[in-house]
Design a protein around this nucleic acid. Structure first.
Lengths: 206, 206
DNA sequence: TATTTTAGGCGAAGAAAAGGGGAATTTCAA
DNA sequence: TTGAAATTCCCCTTTTCTTCGCCTAAAATA
């Protein structure tokens, strides 16, 4: 059972009211919101939408309108091309899977929410102690600056691009710290390093 | 029962309308969208497509057109829900970004391509030497069996669920190997372990 | 090749939903 | 008890769907 134009407007008004005010509107308020002169019309819309299972209500109860699950399902479908997988819980060695309260899916769209996000594939072992391995992908958000401890993509002297942890040092210098005890940190003047982005996430495919 | 050219156009228009507006178009609107002068023609198309099970509708009901499951099945290959980020190249310590030939974007849909894919958040350090850390998410593909060396979600004795590397051993036993030298491998008879899935990917958010 | 079927199309008339209104009535909770 | 809110009844207009002929071209069939 599909929605009509007006019914969709009705639901959107209701969703907005619920969202903003936290409680159900009265018929009077709905009539006002939708430019209707008669409460009978409001009532009819409610009966229709209840019949289509888009909303629930209590009979003869004031301000008892609720959006039904069907509404939310449909809104999720139509809106973002969300690629998501169910997030079932947490797993640890030797214990059953714990369920996670609240969040119940992992949405990839979150990772690419910012239009300036891009990916790089990592070469080498320079971040191995941060558990970023050869072949992993890093999702990088374009950003001109970084805070201490951020993992950044840095352009040094206009030629070398490296993946390192970023730290401010005394005397207008910065330290670019690899996460590999066999490698030395790089100390460079602030002016000769440009932060191209911060690592938001790491992705590894097997 | 295959679609004709015009019928395909019809469905595509309908899908577009539904997607954008969130409700079904009227015959009038369809006629306009497809450059038809008569509502009778629209009606005929609808009857034809209903007969072929590509859409559902309510008799005599306004704006009640819905795409049937058959439509989505058939259009699946046409619909990459493309949440993707550009993949700019490879990065290594001390060298410029190399461009990657061929692949130039990282598509998240690939990770969840199989409908049985789910995510788990990792607790603890038992896979730390495989660079899977506390808090990381693993994407798991449901699968009853595993090959030696796969990282699997295994249910042992019907109670314990663990994340381990899987190896077949002599004598109808399997070894579940943590990637942490402080922890011991588990040896169990094949019958008392059930593989719930294989880890396809690891995801870490900062 | 002649004939029938089918997809696609046009217009207009008729019928049923959907949308809307006014006013009286019932309900519920304060 | 009383007022605010929900429900009902009856009526109206507009929108939308359905049906009935009638047409052409292409495809299938005899």
């Amino acid at each position: 059972m599909a929605l009509t134009k007006r019914q969709k407007e009705f639901l959107e008004f209701l969703a907005g009211f619920l969202e903003k005010r936290g409680y159900s509107p009265s018929y009077e308020e709905i009539a006002e919101g939708l430019n209707l002169a008669s409460l009978a019309t409001v009532h009819k819309h409610i009966l229709a939408l209840e019949g289509k299972h888009y909303l629930k209500r209590g009979f003869n109860q004031s301000r008892s309108l609720e959006l039904a699950p069907k509404y939310y399902e449909e809104m999720r479908q139509h809106r973002p091309p969300a690629v998501e997988v169910p997030l079932l819980g947490r797993i640890a060695a030797g214990s059953p899977v714990e369920a996670i309260a609240g969040q119940d899916s992992l949405n990839f769209a979150d990772f690419a929410a910012d239009p300036g996000t891009y990916a790089l594939q990592v070469r080498g072992e320079s971040m191995i102690e941060d558990h970023i391995c050869d072949g992993d992908y890093v999702l990088v958000q374009k950003s001109g600056d970084a805070r201490d401890g951020d993992i950044v993509v840095a352009l040094v002297d206009g030629v070398e691009t490296t993946l390192k942890r970023f730290y401010n040092e005394d005397g207008d210098r910065v330290r670019l710290q690899p996460a590999n005890s066999t490698m030395q940190p790089i100390y460079v003047p602030k002016q000769s390093v440009r932060i191209q982005g911060k690592v938001l996430a790491v992705l590894r495919k097997y």
